[in-house]
Structures are given as structure tokens and as C-alpha cells.
């Protein structure tokens, strides 16, 4: 729908030349926003499609671990809030697929890539939600990490993505407060509830740090993305911001972060964290996380079971058009 006007444009690489590239970079450098119909280097378009679609996939797959607790939420207030939250994630996915459509990548094609296992999504959603406290930990830590990552994207050079992120960030920050409040309620609750909160923190802390991606020394895409102002901060910078923001929150909750090496640097005030298990990260990204198979199987099942509905809707719509024309 968003891409219809773009369908007849010549493919950008035919037009690429040094002058266009220079003009493009000048626009980027002057903080101009690039819009859907503007000329852009093919590599810029590809980078954005990859990033936006991975983000969209993460929202859709991200519905599953939390969705598993909607039917078991322990109060009606929590049930309504969680259902609304998971619905928001679906909305973010929809919004982001629409942003990708402005770059000529259809939702159907992107979703096929996801279901065929060819597309990536955030590693964090391949961990299981074992207890109710996981819903608190996800809101607090995972949404907290997502916000750190996404706030700078509100200034991304590509207009449709930047605008989508403004709305997404508003909702994410609400989710993060909601998650923290669940953790606070548990931390102040019975011994069993407090133990549940600590256990969730133990399991979600390190995967949350991995959400920022590989260390700067290993990051493949960063340099060009930084020049194009798609990315404003490095993985390690964002990770450090997140740790610095989260440590005092854990202290406030009376919970212990599962890192014996965690200490505050006296000079910078930064919280220095221990070694991240990058082997685990690689394995989860490669498809070997505890829930990778389940997540893709759920997504495929929903897609396959919905096929007759989509076919019927298309058939009905086509008939309405022909009836109207007749």
C-alpha cells in the first residue's frame, strides 16, 4: 500500500553516481531526513530494510514469550495490562513492516523470510518465560534495553523509520514502568515472590546485555550505519548506558544482579560489568537458543492456520471489485 507509488521507479543503482552520493551524504550530514521517494544508495536501502524488518520480526516474535502469560496473569488489572502490552507489540510490528514497505519490501516477503528461518530477530525472545516474574523482568530489562537502543533511532536519517520510533518509544517506556512495577510488587511480597523476582533477574540479566549486539570490536555494520546516521551510538556505548541506568534500579528493588564482577568505576562513575558469554549469544543467534524452534513453529502455525482466512478475504475483496465494476 505505501509502496504503490514506488513500484514504477527505476531501480536506484542505475542512477547511482558520485554526484548523487555526495549530495546524499551532504543531506545526511546536515541532519536532513531522507523520505521514501528520495534518491538513496542501494546499500542504504538494503541496510534499512534489514534493520527495520529485524525490528518488526522481533516485535512479532516478542509477542510469544509474554503472550504465554496473558491467560495466567494473577489479577484482572495485570491481565488487561499484559494483553494491552502484547497488543502494542503487534502494533509496533505492523508499523515497522509499513516503514519497510516504503523501501519497497513487502510485508509478505519479509514474513516469509522470517518463517523460512532466513531472517534474524532479537536473540532475547528465544529465552523462555517460566514464571510470572519473567513478565516483570522482561518489561523492566528487555523493554528498558530496547528503549536505550530505540531513543536514538527517533533521530535516524530515514524519516519513516524515525517517525515510527517516536511512537514506539512512547509505548515502550510505559511498558518498562509497568515491568518495574511488577518487579517492585514481587520484591516487596512474600519470600516466595521475592525469590521468583530474583530468579527472573538471574535469568534475564545477561541476555538483556546481549541485546545490544556484539562488542564494538566485532560489529560488522556499524561504521557505515554511523556515517549514514542510522546508528548514533555504538553497541558498547548503549550497553554501558543501560547498565548504569539499571544498577541503581536493582538496588532500589533490593535484588542482586548476577554478576560478581560488577563494580562502580570511581573516576567515571560507570558500572563495570563482567565478561559476557558471547558464545551463548552466537548460539542463540544461530538458532540454538532454548526457544528458537518453538518461536518459529508458533509463527508458522499461526500463518498456516490463517491461510484460508486470508485467501477468503482476498477472494471476497476481488469479487466486490468486479461486482462494483460490472
Amino acid at each position: 500500500m505505501y509502496t504503490q507509488a514506488l513500484n514504477d521507479l527505476p531501480t536506484p543503482h542505475n542512477l547511482e553516481d558520485a554526484e548523487k552520493m555526495a549530495n546524499f551524504q551532504t543531506r545526511i550530514d546536515s541532519e536532513d531526513r531522507i523520505e521514501a521517494n528520495d534518491w538513496m544508495p542501494e546499500a542504504y536501502r538494503r541496510t534499512l530494510v534489514r534493520q527495520i524488518s529485524q525490528h518488526a520480526h522481533s516485535e512479532i516474535i516478542g509477542q510469544l514469550p509474554e503472550g504465554a502469560w496473558i491467560t495466567r496473569a494473577p489479577s484482572l488489572r495485570r491481565k488487561a495490562a499484559l494483553l494491552a502490552k502484547v497488543q502494542d507489540e503487534c502494533g509496533h510490528g505492523l508499523y515497522l513492516y509499513a516503514a519497510a514497505e516504503t523501501l519497497n519490501a513487502s510485508r509478505e516477503a519479509l514474513m516469509d523470510q522470517l518463517m523460512e528461518g532466513k531472517a534474524k530477530y532479537s536473540s532475547i525472545f528465544n529465552y523462555p518465560t517460566m514464571t510470572w516474574a519473567d513478565i516483570g523482568a522482561i518489561g523492566w530489562l528487555v523493554d528498558g534495553a530496547a528503549i536505550m537502543n530505540q531513543i536514538p533511532l527517533c533521530r535516524c536519517s530515514y524519516g519513516p523509520y524515525a517517525r515510527a520510533m517516536i511512537r514506539v518509544c512512547k509505548e515502550e517506556s510505559f511498558h518498562q514502568r509497568q515491568g518495574f512495577e511488577i518487579m517492585m510488587t514481587l520484591a516487596k511480597g512474600s519470600a516466595r515472590q521475592k525469590a521468583m523476582a530474583q530468579d527472573a533477574l538471574n535469568r534475564w540479566w545477561w541476555p538483556s546485555l546481549m541485546m545490544f549486539g556484539p562488542p564494538d570490536t566485532d560489529s560488522q555494520h556499524s561504521d557505515q550505519s554511523t556515517r549514514w546516521k542510522i546508528k548514533r551510538f555504538s553497541n558498547d556505548e548503549l550497553r554501558q548506558k543501560f547498565v548504569d541506568a539499571t544498577v541503581p534500579q536493582a538496588q532500589f528493588l533490593g535484588l542482586t544482579l548476577p554478576d560478581p564482577d560488577l563494580r562502580q568505576d570511581e573516576v567515571t562513575g560507570n558500572w563495570m560489568y563482567g565478561e559476557i558469554d558471547w558464545e551463548e549469544f552466537k548460539q542463540v543467534i544461530a538458532g540454538n537458543g532454548p526457544c528458537n524452534q518453538d518461536r518459529l513453529a508458533s509463527r508458522r502455525k499461526a500463518h498456516e492456520e490463517g491461510a484460508w482466512v486470508r485467501e477468503a478475504a482476498a477472494a471476497y475483496a476481488a469479487r466486490q471489485v468486479s461486482r462494483h465494476a460490472a
Binding site: I60, Q63, L64, G67, I70, T71, L76, K79, A80, L83, A84, V86, Q87, C90, G91, G93, L94, Y97, S298, K301, A302, E305, G306, A307, V309, R310
Partner: peptide, 26 residues
């Protein structure tokens, strides 16, 4: 309806069913 969240035939219907579920829970 809340059982369908994340499993509907399209994203639009996923949101719509969640919406109706939220209204009813309210």
C-alpha cells in the same frame, strides 16, 4: 479472545481480537 493474542491470521486481526478482549475484560 486473549488466548489468540500472537496467533491470529493477520496482524490486523491479532490487534482487533485483542481489542475486543480488552473491552470485555474492562
Amino acid at each position: 479472545l486473549s488466548e489468540c493474542c500472537g496467533h491470529a491470521p493477520t496482524l490486523e486481526e491479532d490487534m482487533a481480537l485483542a481489542n475486543i478482549g480488552l473491552d470485555l475484560i474492562g
